[in-house]
Amino acid sequence: CHSECLGNCSQPDDPTKCVACRNFYLDGRCVETCPPPYYHFQDWRCVNFSFCQDLHHKCKNSRRQGCHQYVIHNNKCIPECPSGYTMNSSNLLCTPCLGPCPKVCHLLEGEKTIDSVTSAQELRGCTVINGSLIINIRGGNNLAAELEANLGLIEEISGYLKIRRSYALVSLSFFRKLRLIRGETLEIGNYSFYALDNQNLRQLWDWSKHNLTITQGKLFFHYNPKLCLSEIHKMEEVSGTKGRQERNDIALKTNGDQASCENELLKFSYIRTSFDKILLRWEPYWPPDFRDLLGFMLFYKEAPYQNVTEFDGQDACGSNSWTVVDIDPPLRSNDPKSQNHPGWLMRGLKPWTQYAIFVKTLVTFSDERRTYGAKSDIIYVQTDATNPSVPLDPISVSNSSSQIILKWKPPSDPNGNITHYLVFWERQAEDSELFELDYCLKGLKLPSRTWSPPFESEDSQKHNQSEYEDSAGECCSCPKTDSQILKELEESSFRKTFEDYLHNVVFVPRKT
């Protein structure tokens, strides 16, 4: 048989008469490798580009789960590009990614509803959504962080984005990388972005840091009482949809009607710091009717980097990364020049730590249904340095008659930039024990000054392991946590139920 035959053949030295091919099969003959313009397919066939392209389009058009959109890589027609490569849609070739590779997620039936953290986790790592997304989240724990972890990498949506009755959302900033909504599939009414009845939605994105392009379709905003109209108009300008909307697409009466839409800028007039305090004062603000001013709200939190936005980490279910302080308005003076500047002394802060701070007014709604208010920009203030805590785990070892090696770990709280350490030492008198000992005694162990690591005695271990207080009263049991108490109650309830079950099964009433 021919060298490319495997198993047997019907005619000697003829690659077209093989029972099976050793390498690849091409047009009725066995070959060692697939010549151009053919590609290896499933490690035994040679196919042309049209064959591989037909497989790709067949799966793409069917949208069946589990099928493969075949691509070409290293002269092979394979189910998908290997790690580190992405497909070129024009020629199906796998090309190296520039940075992290995109991950295209194809949605069944063309859309997916995100109504819980669990459903959001199914899209973790996706960068391109081939379909439409509907966000409908009523509640949950730590929602802002969970949504950002699972949806934060999405850069492109081919269909539309719909935010509907998501009472738990305060902001859409968890879509931190969303840059493009194509609108290839539109919501009824030709809408590519749809926001309806979101009672706590206050911000779409921080438009000073976020760009969003909507290729096709219109915007729809109705019944978002805490979303200011200025935020919607800003989205029109940034996304390129200005002029597409009709009169009733953006409701003037049901958007922002319960919001404090600040239209003035508060400026800080005085800032002073110490290692654990920050004193702030800002310019006074009074609405047209000074009785509408209820006070100020001061927001602050630790910020290692200057990239904080107002609604980071917030949701309507209680999660809030900001510390909020309510401040009463100052006494009002008739003389504008003698107006008191409101302020606040922030206490209990960490030394040498940068804080993000902003302040906003708290006002009631005027009778004319106009909203007044003022808010400052987010500023960054760093507390002063102070003395560091003591170095940890000092170790001293003498390696000769004239040297001592000293080692330690950095302090747990540096409280500033540590530039150097101060080492103090003092000579001590020799131990009298060394002169009084009889060095001729056998088995004498000389006193040693070398360091030995501390260890816990058996008594201390027994005390720590004991669940009861000892007789001397030195140790006591740790208080039980809520989960331990709940577990004990469940076990007790189970024992009672099981005992009742045994009584009912074992003891049967005697027939009379």
Score class of each variant (00 low, 15 high):
Asn263Arg: 10
Pro342Thr: 12
Arg247Thr: 12
Gln216Phe: 07
Asn200Tyr: 11
Trp282Gly: 00
Ser338Tyr: 06
Thr383Gln: 00
Glu148Thr: 10
Leu345Met: 05
Lys234Thr: 14
Val104Lys: 08
Gly131Thr: 02
Trp344Glu: 05
Ser230His: 06
Gly159Pro: 00
Tyr223Leu: 14
Lys407Phe: 02
Asp292Lys: 12
Ser401Arg: 13
Arg347Pro: 10
Leu172Glu: 00
Ala259Pro: 14
Leu229Ser: 09
Tyr285Thr: 04
Tyr194Trp: 12
Ser158Val: 07
Leu133Lys: 00
Leu204Arg: 00
Glu146Trp: 09
Ile154Arg: 00
Gly348His: 07
Leu280Tyr: 00
Leu294Asn: 12
Arg138Gln: 14
Pro287His: 09
Tyr380Gln: 02
Gly189Arg: 04
Ser116Gln: 02
Ser116Pro: 01
Trp352Arg: 02
Cys261Lys: 02
Ala374Thr: 05
Asn130Tyr: 04
Ala120Ser: 09
Asp206Gly: 06
Trp322Phe: 09
Ser396Tyr: 08
Trp205Ser: 01
Leu204Val: 06
Asp206Thr: 06
Asp367Lys: 11
Thr383Leu: 04
Arg370Leu: 05
Phe365Ala: 04
Phe193Ala: 02
Lys407Pro: 00
Ile327Phe: 05
Ile163Thr: 02
Arg291Met: 10
Leu151Thr: 04
Ala144Gln: 11
Ser269His: 11
Ser173Ile: 08
Ile188Ser: 09
Gly110Asn: 04
Arg164Val: 04
Gln258Val: 10
Trp205Gln: 02
Asp335Phe: 14
Arg176Pro: 11
Thr213Ile: 11
Cys126Val: 02
Leu362Cys: 02
Thr323Trp: 15
Phe174Cys: 13
Arg179Lys: 12
Gln403Cys: 08
Glu146Pro: 12
Ser366Leu: 01
Arg124Ser: 10
Lys162Ala: 02
Trp205Ile: 02
Phe193Pro: 01
Ser319Asp: 15
Gly140Leu: 14
Gly159Ser: 02
Tyr194Asp: 08
Ala303Leu: 04
Ser192Asp: 01
Asp326His: 01
Ile135Ala: 02
Leu153Met: 12
Asp115Ala: 05
Glu310Ser: 11
Ser401Lys: 09
Lys360His: 01
Glu187Ser: 09
Lys409Val: 12
Glu302Gly: 15
Tyr191Val: 08
Glu237Met: 12
Val359Gln: 00
Val238Tyr: 12
His222Lys: 00
Phe175Cys: 03
Ile181Tyr: 00
Ile134Arg: 09
Leu169His: 04
Leu123Asn: 01
Leu362Thr: 05
Asp206Val: 08
Ile232Val: 04
Ser398Pro: 14
Arg347Trp: 10
Thr213Glu: 12
Lys301Trp: 04
Leu201Cys: 03
Asp315Met: 07
Pro288Asp: 04
Ser260Gln: 08
Asn141Arg: 06
Thr118Lys: 09
Gly217Asn: 03
Ile214Val: 14
Phe220Thr: 10
Leu406Gly: 02
Ile327Asn: 01
Phe193Thr: 02
Gly373Thr: 08
Pro330Asn: 08
Val238Thr: 06
Leu298Cys: 02
Asn190Cys: 02
Tyr191Lys: 05
Ser239Leu: 11
Leu186His: 14
Phe175Ile: 13
Leu172Lys: 00
Ile327Pro: 02
Phe311Trp: 15
Ile188Lys: 10
Ser173His: 13
Gly243Thr: 10
Ser260Asp: 09
Ala145Trp: 03
Asn248Met: 09
Arg165Val: 13
Asn255Gln: 07
Glu231Gly: 13
Ser396Leu: 15
Tyr191Cys: 13
Leu147Lys: 00
Phe268Val: 09
Glu246Lys: 03
Leu392Trp: 06
Thr254Met: 11
Lys301His: 11
Ser396Met: 04
Gln354Cys: 01
Gln339Ala: 08
Glu236Asn: 15
Asp312Thr: 14
Gly159Leu: 00
Tyr300Phe: 04
Asn142Val: 05
Phe220Leu: 10
Ser376Thr: 09
Ala259Arg: 08
Ile378Asn: 01
Leu180Met: 05
Phe174Leu: 07
Leu178Phe: 03
Lys234Cys: 14
Trp344Leu: 11
Gly152Trp: 11
Ser166Trp: 01
Tyr191Asn: 04
Leu153Ala: 13
Val363Pro: 10
Asn136Arg: 06
Thr127Gln: 09
Leu147His: 02
Ala195Phe: 11
Gly131Glu: 01
Thr353Tyr: 08
Ser116Arg: 01
Gly125Trp: 05
Gln245Ala: 13
Ile114Asp: 00
Leu294Gln: 05
Asn263Pro: 11
Gly243Arg: 11
Ala144Asn: 03
Phe220Gln: 02
Val104Met: 06
Ser398Thr: 14
Ser158Tyr: 11
Tyr285Ser: 13
Thr241Glu: 08
Cys317Glu: 14
Arg244Tyr: 07
Asn198Pro: 00
Gln121Lys: 10
Lys375Thr: 15
Gly243Pro: 01
Lys301Glu: 02
Asp315Pro: 09
Leu151His: 01
Asn211Arg: 10
Phe268Gly: 00
Ile114His: 01
Ser401Leu: 03
Thr118Leu: 04
Thr386Gln: 05
Ile154Ser: 01
Thr353Gly: 02
Tyr300Thr: 03
Asn141Gln: 07
Cys126Tyr: 03
Gly295Tyr: 02
Gly343Val: 02
Asp257His: 10
Thr361Ile: 05
Leu123Pro: 01
Lys103Glu: 08
Asn190Ser: 10
Cys228Val: 04
Leu147Gln: 02
Leu345Arg: 03
Pro304Gly: 03
Val397Met: 12
Met346Thr: 03
Asn224Val: 01
Thr273Glu: 06
Pro287Cys: 13
Pro410Arg: 07
Ile188His: 09
Ala303Asn: 05
Tyr194Ser: 09
Gly110Gln: 14
Lys162Arg: 08
Phe221Val: 13
Met346Val: 05
Phe299Ser: 02
Arg347Gly: 03
Lys409Pro: 05
Gly139Leu: 07
Lys209Val: 14
Leu280His: 00
Pro288His: 06
Gly189Pro: 11
Ser400Phe: 10
Leu169Arg: 01
Tyr305Ile: 15
Cys228Gly: 02
Leu123Arg: 01
Arg138Ser: 14
Ser192Met: 02
Ser389Gln: 04
Leu147Thr: 02
Val104Glu: 13
Cys228Arg: 03
Asn142Met: 06
Tyr223Thr: 14
Gln121His: 13
Pro330Lys: 08
Asp393Val: 12
Pro391Thr: 06
Phe174His: 05
Glu236Met: 07
Thr323Ile: 08
Asn142Thr: 08
Glu302Tyr: 03
Ser116Leu: 04
Val397Ala: 07
Arg124Ile: 13
Ser116Phe: 10
Thr309Trp: 10
Leu212Lys: 01
Trp322Arg: 01
Ser401Gln: 05
Leu331Ile: 13
His341Leu: 07
Asn211Ser: 13
Ser338Met: 12
Val390Ile: 14
Trp408Met: 02
Gln354Ile: 13
Leu293Gln: 13
Ser119Phe: 04
Pro391Asp: 09
Ala374Gly: 12
Gln339Phe: 13
Lys301Pro: 00
Ile137Gly: 13
Glu156Val: 05
Asn248Gly: 09
Arg244Asn: 03
Gly110Leu: 08
Arg247Glu: 06
Leu151Ile: 04
Pro342Ser: 08
Ala120Tyr: 07
Trp282Gln: 00
Pro288Thr: 08
Pro351Gly: 12
Gln199Tyr: 08
Asp292Ile: 07
Asn399Met: 15
Asn200Gly: 03
Ala149Thr: 13
Ala145Ile: 08
Leu252Gln: 12
Ser338Leu: 11
Leu153Tyr: 04
Phe174Lys: 00
Asn200Thr: 02
Val381Tyr: 02
Ala251Tyr: 10
Gly152Ser: 03
Gly125Met: 13
Phe268Asp: 00
Phe296Thr: 01
Ala303Trp: 10
Asp312Gln: 04
Leu161Ile: 14
Asn211Glu: 08
Tyr194Thr: 11
Asn263Cys: 10
Lys337Tyr: 13
Ala374Trp: 07
Asn263Thr: 08
Ser132Pro: 02
Ala149Asp: 10
Tyr285Glu: 01
Tyr191Trp: 04
Thr309Phe: 05
Ile405His: 04
Trp408Thr: 00
Val390Met: 08
Cys126Thr: 01
Tyr160Ser: 11
Glu283His: 07
Ile278Gly: 00
Ala120Asn: 02
Gly131Tyr: 02
Ala356Ser: 08
Lys177Asp: 15
Ile129Lys: 00
Gln245Cys: 07
Leu345Tyr: 14
Glu122Tyr: 09
Trp282Asn: 02
Gln403Gly: 15
Phe174Gln: 01
Asn387Asp: 04
Asp393Leu: 06
Thr386Met: 10
Tyr191Phe: 06
Phe174Ser: 05
Asp257Ala: 15
Glu236Gly: 07
Leu108Ala: 13
Glu283Tyr: 10
Asp393Lys: 15
Met346Phe: 04
Thr371Gly: 04
Lys162Thr: 05
Glu187Phe: 12
Trp205Pro: 01
Ala149Glu: 10
Thr309Val: 13
Thr383Pro: 00
Glu156Tyr: 06
Pro342Asn: 06
Gly125Asp: 09
Lys177Asn: 15
Arg281Ser: 13
Asn307Gly: 02
Tyr300Glu: 00
Ser132Arg: 02
Gln245Gly: 15
Leu201Arg: 00
Thr323Gln: 13
Glu148Pro: 08
Glu237Leu: 13
Trp352Gly: 00
Leu227Met: 09
Leu406Phe: 07
Ser171Met: 04
Ile114Tyr: 04
Leu252Arg: 09
Asn198Val: 03
Gln216Glu: 02
Asn340Tyr: 08
Leu201Thr: 02
Ser116Ile: 13
Gln339Thr: 07
Asn399Leu: 10
Lys267Cys: 09
Ser319Ala: 06
Ile379Thr: 15
Leu294Ile: 08
Leu107Arg: 05
